[in-house]
Each structure stands twice: as structure tokens, then as C-alpha cells.
Design a binder for these strands. Structure first.
Length: 496
DNA sequence: TGCTGGCCGGAC
DNA sequence: AAACGTCCGGCCAGCA
């Protein structure tokens, strides 16, 4: 093929008879073990009309190194404000190649070639992740939920004892009935704007505490009980969407494996003879901020031992550690955290419970110490207004609606999106690194800045090392000016 | 009865 | 005017 993005291509299409058709654009063959070995060995770019087809071939042992899925390419194009390429109808090999070439030209015209290459390398990795599933200990999972049931029942009892016989005419108020509860609180002389955790925590009334307790427990039971209904051989299979978020992050649903709460993570357990390796970037988004801004002081402070304390010391001119002047550390941490999201003075004031004026003063002082960081923020926002385009390190792009230019997004997109680039590239590097490794290592989950791998116990140390190297190496590739740091631990369960 | 939007909260 | 981002999902409330 002439298109530089594709190189040599093989098209894989569903066969109406239930098989898969393999084509190079001229000849067509059925997918057999032989043709499969042939294309696996020569490693061309695979071209599929949808991920279902890719799954079918991978189930039969297909191991693509890169795979172009037109709908995903279209998403990259669309978000960059470029024209999409219609999926040919009917889907024929020559038409698919033509469409993919078209998409390739559009991608290059819009400087999306690098991110397209990243995504096409990541797609097979993502499919393998999805097909492997997350191993869980069903008994432990059920036990945690049974305890939550217990707590929910108790909290519900306490609440209805107080609220059940209502002066306002609502008999038997259920803890989920928001409007009635708001009504009831009003009757008690407490007119609340909402029933969020934040406002409820400040309400000095036992009913508020009972409601919070019920919500905490019933969240667990209502959301996570259904997970075990989906398990097959003690594994849960989520549906990962490689471009689920417009920042480039993956998303996951049915069920969502990316928001399993801390209380259930110990129930994610490797089967007999195998272990889990959990590895996460520590402070990777702050490191990305450091790399993008090029701020020397920020970089040096970040690389020193305890970042939040160090920032607090600079900010307030006194010694701060986790034990000494902890409130100052807390303030610095709030700013550092908000930095990633483009937080303003108002919100900082709210989270630190101070006046907006004080918060503004704090931010000014903060950016005084990190002048290049402040300049980068200004520049990023100005450029977003001017070009109406946001961009990450891999060239991933987001076209802004001129009617609603968000300065927070201008700051957050390159950071969050850069993090997505980073972990995807790390996963690709890891899969390549373990090609020859025994012990059947497999990705079992990815959560934005964390990678979870399952492997035979005997290979755990070796694979842990490869994983760390892949993650750090990906950082060196994408953000060479600031080294990434990775925490990695081997254990039976996810977060023991 | 089924759909939709808002609220709320889990993860990062 | 105001502004801490990205998701998924369960439940209630309102509407047809």
C-alpha cells in the first residue's frame, strides 16, 4: 500500500457464513489456521470494520501488532474537527482499503498520524485485556457485600425510626427519596439545598449521619452485587472503550472495572499459582505539568522527597512535613491537585474553607514561586482561544466549540490526555516486552495511571521488572525532560 | 409502562 | 456569570 500510515495491510471481514474473510485487496481467502499463522508471522496492519471482527479473529489466535478500526479513526478525526470517512457499504476489501487510505490522508493532513499509530498499536492490547478478564474471589466479594447489606439495613432502620413518622404527611419515607427527605429536613428547621455528602456532613442531626451511612453501604450493594452475576469461572469481563473519553482516556462499562472501590479491591485475587502485579505512576499528572510547563523550580520540587510538603515550605516559608504544620501541607496539596484541573481561586477557597481573597493571595504566591508554570498556563489558555484547538504530546487533538471555550479544559486536556497517551504507550511497550516471557503474563486491568498484570508466581519478579521498565520507558519517550516514577508490588490480591 | 434528566458517588 | 477535569451507573422524579 502506498499510504505511509498503513504499510502492508490485511483486511479482515466477517463472512456471512460465520467465518472470516482475509484479503490483501486483490485476493480473498478464508481464515484458516494456516492463513492465521501467515498473517501473525508477517505482522501487517490489520484492517477491520469493527471491533467485533477483531475479537473473532483474536479468539482464534490472531495476534496483530497494529489494527486499524475505522470507527476509532473517525473518532480521532471528528474530535480534531476533521472530516470523517464513511464506512463503506457494503463492506468489501477494496473499499475498506480505500476508506482506510482516505482516513490515513486526513489524519496526516491534520497532524494526527502519531496518535493514530499509538491507537492502532493499543487497540489489540485493549482487546486482549478485555478478553482476559479480571480474576476475583467470589466468596470474599460476597462477604464484603453481605457486610454492606448489614450496615445498610442498620442505617436504614435508624433513619426510618427518626423519619418514618413524619409530621409533614409523608409516611414511611425511604432513604432514597430525595424530595421527601428535603421536605422532612425543612420541617426540622434545616432547609438544605441538596443532600450531597458535603452539605450533609455539616448537618448536626443524627438523621443526616444515618442517611450518609445508608448511602455509603447501599452504593456498594446496589452497584457491585451485580458484578458476580456476570462472572465466568471467577473472572469478570468488562467492556473497554479505548477512546471512551474525549481526552483520550479509556472508559469501561458493563461492568465498569475502573471504579471498583477500595473496599472491594482486595477481593480481586489471582487464581492458584498466579499473582497480581499492580503498578501505578506516582504523581504522573503533576510530572506532566512539569514537563509541559518546563518550570525548573516546579520540576526540582517535584523530584524532591515529599512534593506537597516541599511546596508548602516554599509557599509559607516554614518547615512542613506530614507531621509538622500538616495544615499547610494540606493547603499545598489542594493547590497541587487543583492545578491538574485548572482550578480557580473560588473553588480553592471552598475546599480550604477560606475567603476568596485569601485563596487568590495563596495562588498568586504559588505562581510567584513557579513563574514558568504561570506563564505556561497563560500561554495555554491564550493559544486555545486563538487556535480553538487543544493538543497532547502524542498529537491527540480536540477542536473547541467557539461558543464555549473553557479555560479549565485548556489546562486539563493536555495533562489528562497526555496521561492517556502515556499509559497506552506503556501498555504497548509492555506487551512487546513480554513476547518471549513464560508464565503467561496478561494485562487484567488498566485504570488511568495504573496497570494490573496477572502472571505465574515463578515469573513475577521478571515480569514486574519488565512492567516497570515499560512504564518508565514510555515516560522517557513521551516526556523526556521529567523522569516518571512507578510503584509496583506483587501480591495475591489487588491492594492487599 | 418506558424514557429521560438530575442527583449522587465510586474511580482516576 | 462562573468556572477542578474525565468517566460509569443506580435511583428518583417527571413526563408521555
Amino acid at each position: 500500500m502506498s499510504n505511509l500510515l498503513l504499510g502492508s495491510v490485511v483486511v479482515l471481514l466477517d463472512d456471512p457464513l460465520g467465518g472470516v474473510v482475509v484479503s490483501d485487496g486483490q485476493t480473498q481467502e478464508p481464515l484458516t489456521d494456516e492463513t492465521l499463522q501467515l498473517i501473525n508471522h508477517s505482522s501487517p496492519v490489520w484492517l477491520v470494520s469493527d471491533r467485533r471482527t477483531l475479537r473473532r479473529v483474536m479468539r482464534r489466535g490472531g495476534r496483530p501488532t497494529r489494527c486499524v478500526c475505522l470507527p476509532d479513526y473517525n473518532r480521532l478525526l471528528d474530535q480534531a474537527g476533521a472530516a470523517k470517512v464513511p464506512l463503506p457499504d457494503p463492506v468489501r476489501p477494496e473499499a475498506m482499503i480505500e476508506a482506510a487510505n482516505q482516513a490515513g490522508y486526513h489524519l496526516r493532513d491534520h497532524d494526527l498520524a502519531r496518535v493514530a499509530k499509538l491507537e492502532s498499536s493499543f487497540l489489540p492490547v485493549c482487546e486482549r485485556l478485555q478478553a482476559t478478564g479480571l480474576p476475583i474471589d467470589l466468596g470474599a466479594w460476597d462477604a464484603v457485600l453481605a457486610a454492606a447489606h448489614q450496615r445498610a439495613g442498620e442505617a436504614r432502620g435508624q433513619l426510618t425510626a427518626m423519619v418514618g413518622r413524619d409530621l409533614g404527611g409523608h409516611p414511611n419515607i425511604e432513604p432514597g427519596e430525595r424530595n421527601k427527605l428535603l421536605d422532612w429536613f425543612k420541617h426540622q428547621g434545616l432547609s438544605l439545598n441538596d443532600l450531597s455528602k458535603g452539605t450533609l456532613a455539616g448537618v448536626d442531626h443524627p438523621a443526616a449521619q444515618a442517611l450518609l451511612a445508608w448511602r455509603e453501604a447501599s452504593k456498594l450493594t446496589s452497584t457491585y452485587e451485580s458484578y458476580t452475576e456476570r462472572q465466568v469461572n471467577s473472572r469478570i469481563y468488562g467492556h473497554f472503550e479505548p477512546l471512551g473519553a474525549h481526552t483520550g482516556r479509556m472508559s469501561c462499562g458493563e461492568p465498569n472495572l475502573q471504579n471498583i472501590p477500595a473496599s472491594l479491591r482486595p477481593c480481586v485475587r489471582a487464581p492458584q499459582g498466579r499473582v497480581l502485579i499492580g503498578a501505578d505512576y506516582s504523581g504522573c499528572e503533576l510530572r506532566i505539568v512539569a514537563a509541559l510547563s518546563g518550570d525548573h523550580a516546579f520540576r526540582e520540587t517535584l523530584l524532591s522527597s515529599d512534593f506537597h510538603s516541599a511546596v508548602a515550605s516554599r509557599l509559607f516559608g516554614q518547615t512542613v512535613s506530614k507531621t509538622e504544620n500538616a495544615s499547610l501541607r494540606h493547603a499545598a496539596k489542594a493547590i497541587n491537585f487543583g492545578l491538574i484541573y485548572g482550578m480557580g481561586a473560588r473553588r480553592l477557597a471552598q475546599s480550604l474553607e477560606m475567603s476568596v481573597g485569601e485563596a487568590r493571595g495563596l495562588l498568586d504566591k504559588y505562581f510567584e514561586g513557579f513563574p514558568q508554570l504561570a506563564a505556561w498556563r497563560e500561554q495555554a489558555q491564550a493559544q486555545a482561544r486563538q487556535t480553538l484547538m487543544l493538543e497532547t504530546v502524542s498529537g491527540r487533538k480536540l477542536k473547541l466549540d467557539p461558543n464555549k471555550i473553557s479555560s479549565t479544559l485548556a489546562l486539563n486536556y493536555p495533562v489528562q490526555g497526555g496521561g492517556a497517551d502515556l499509559i497506552k504507550w506503556a501498555a504497548v511497550r509492555f506487551i512487546r516486552a513480554i513476547q518471549q516471557t513464560k508464565g503467561e503474563p496478561a494485562l487484567v486491568n488498566m485504570v488511568h495511571d495504573e496497570i494490573l498484570v496477572e502472571v505465574d508466581r515463578d515469573q513475577a519478579d521478571e515480569v514486574r521488572q519488565l512492567l516497570v521498565e515499560s512504564m518508565i520507558g514510555a515516560g522517557a519517550d513521551l516526556f523526556p525532560s521529567v523522569p516518571m516514577a512507578v510503584d509496583a508490588r506483587i501480591s495475591q490480591a489487588w491492594e492487599h
